[in-house]
């Protein structure tokens, strides 16, 4: 029990003292998660909107596939991305194996089905009368799209939040694709895994606390947006 309490105390010390190694992992985490979230939102929101809004043959089957992809194991994604971007893989020429963009690619694949499926779900749950209501003003297709997006904004925020949660807490992709290289591709989660393995609980707890703080900050800003929107 003592080592846990001691770990928490040392964690605060590391954070307040601005430990370089700790902050390097934090920086790497924020960088890759921002990159992967940007990619997954840009691709996931329009595709999720289309999936929830339009009716087309095979929609149910496609929906089932996307829902299933939400549960993709991170180590499997890590394996696939590793195979794709390794020097023998089809994307080997990009040279992004053991780099932050490589991790971001894997994390985007992880987040994409989450964003798409949850966006589709919020569009589907939107009052079906909204489309008729908007068309009753004689709006253009573009405005119809953007107004509908605005009407489901909180659903989309929740989709993004869920995806962000998965991205920042995954270990498999960062470890396999990034290689957990100190000062370079070491993220918070891979650092926690490494430090715990070495018995360095204090660093692990410090990094865990930072992860919690990031999640708290994201949630806090979302609630602020909802309240003052």
């Amino acid at each position: 029990m003592d080592f846990i309490v001691g770990g928490i105390v040392k964690a605060f010390h590391l954070l307040l003292a601005g430990d370089q190694e700790t902050y390097s992992a934090v920086k790497a985490t924020i960088y890759v998660s921002s990159l992967s979230m940007l990619a997954s939102l840009v691709l996931g929101i329009p595709s999720g909107f289309a999936l929830g809004y339009f009716s087309f043959p095979g929609k149910k089957a496609l929906r089932m596939v996307v829902d299933t992809l939400m549960a993709l194991p991170t180590v499997f994604i890590g394996l696939v991305v590793y195979a794709l971007i390794s020097s023998r893989g089809p994307l080997g020429s990009l040279g992004i194996l053991f780099s932050l963009p490589g991790i971001a690619l894997g994390q985007a694949i992880l987040a994409l089905p989450v964003v798409a499926a949850l966006s589709a779900m919020s569009v589907e749950s939107l009052d079906s009368r909204i489309r008729h209501t908007l068309m009753s003003f004689g709006v253009s297709r573009t405005r119809l799209f953007f107004t509908t997006i605005r009407e489901v904004r909180f659903g989309l925020l929740i989709a993004a939040l869920n995806a962000y949660g998965r991205v920042t807490t995954e270990v498999g992709i960062s470890m396999m694709v990034g290689g957990n290289i100190k000062w370079h591709t070491r993220t918070i989660t891979t650092a926690i895994a490494l430090e715990t393995g070495k018995g360095m609980f204090d660093t692990g707890i410090a990094l865990g606390l930072i992860l919690l703080m990031i999640a708290f900050a994201v949630n806090l800003s979302l609630s602020f947006l909802r309240k003052y929107e």
């Binding site: 909204i130 008729h132 209501t133 009753s136 003003f137």
Partner: peptide
């Protein structure tokens, strides 16, 4: 485009944003 804003409908189930 010619009917944009010139024909308006209050449907039976019109909802508000």
């Amino acid at each position: 485009p010619v009917a944009r804003g010139r024909i308006a409908t209050l449907t039976q189930d019109a909802s508000l944003l």
